[in-house]
Design a protein around this nucleic acid. Structure first.
Lengths: 164, 164
DNA sequence: GCCATATACTGCGAGTACGTAGTATCATCT
DNA sequence: AGATGATACTACGTACTCGCAGTATATGGC
């Protein structure tokens, strides 16, 4: 198993204070480094918070996409989340084996197909969402900037990363 | 091998424009979801850009920490980057087998030790840095907000994630 | 229609991340 | 000093990610 990281994260977060002295000089850092740190912290927190639902942070995010759009293809999903198609393939196989998604033919392209969450998949996502929401609320309230400001910065960054 | 993702990423980024239509409604999203998207894009871009150096984005970040601080312990490093200690252990074993780090006794604690980059490790990091810099520059220039503003938002987020 | 090439996806295998369980050292209490 | 518990790290195994190579369908040129 690799899913339930609750132990680790709880332990780590408890001891955060003690390590406050360990600080990397900012002149050695940059935006992308900051992203790295933030994303590590985010994944640690979410994986721990969602563990009981049986979903990882990645999986929860993908399920979230699938609930808010209907019937994407693997390729669309992969490109959209900047993931290799082979990884999407693995995800889909896993989700399908859980009975959480179904494939339906893609009328526009015989090589492809469309993915949809099943009722069980949606239920799992809802359960995970119940664990997710209080965590999100707490993070947003701990921000010392308005959440929309932070989100604007992230969107700007996302556009910059995809631009080329 | 899992390191050289150049092919994939280049292909994916080239086709970004075509998928501009695939947009997730923002009402279904939130700060943490944004972090997820940004971090996926960041890792994809960096793994591809750094592939020739033999370092992944994660590894480059860790090497960067090790160059700007001297002699951290595995535990400090792990907590600081919100990673499980067992993962740090794997990293360290790998880096050591590459001849990129050395362990020296920790005078304060016999259970622990301190890690330092070797000359070879620093050289590898420098080489990766040469690949990294232009990518960073391009991303910063593509930002439609000042880089410090974006970084402030990320720092705020980081503090909020660790707070508790 | 036929061929060449590009695209959508999958099978497989290699390397990786990390949880469980264990060992060694440290800290605290008595 | 000895015992008890906490902490720093590692060995091992499992599940996972993703690159390579392959198959199937689509597309454009002729």
């Amino acid at each position: 198993m690799m899913r339930s990281r609750s132990n680790f994260v709880k332990r780590e977060f408890e001891s955060t204070e003690r390590d406050a002295g360990v600080v990397i000089p900012p002149e050695g850092t940059n935006v992308l480094f900051d992203v790295w740190l933030v994303s590590r912290a985010t994944f640690a927190l979410l994986d721990a918070s969602l563990a009981a639902s049986g979903l990882t942070a990645d999986e929860f995010a993908i399920y979230s996409v699938l609930t808010s759009t209907d019937a994407m293809t693997p390729g669309e999903l992969a490109r959209w989340m900047s993931a290799p198609l082979t990884s999407m393939s693995s995800y889909i196989k896993r989700f399908e084996s859980r009975g959480h998604i179904t494939r339906t033919a893609n009328p526009d392209d015989g090589r492809s197909y469309r993915i949809q969450l099943t009722a069980a998949g949606r239920a799992t996502h809802r359960a995970a969402g119940k664990l997710f929401q209080p965590v999100l609320d707490r993070v947003e309230q701990s921000l010392d900037q308005p959440a929309p400001t932070v989100r604007d910065a992230l969107h700007s960054l996302h556009r910059a990363l995809l631009a080329d």
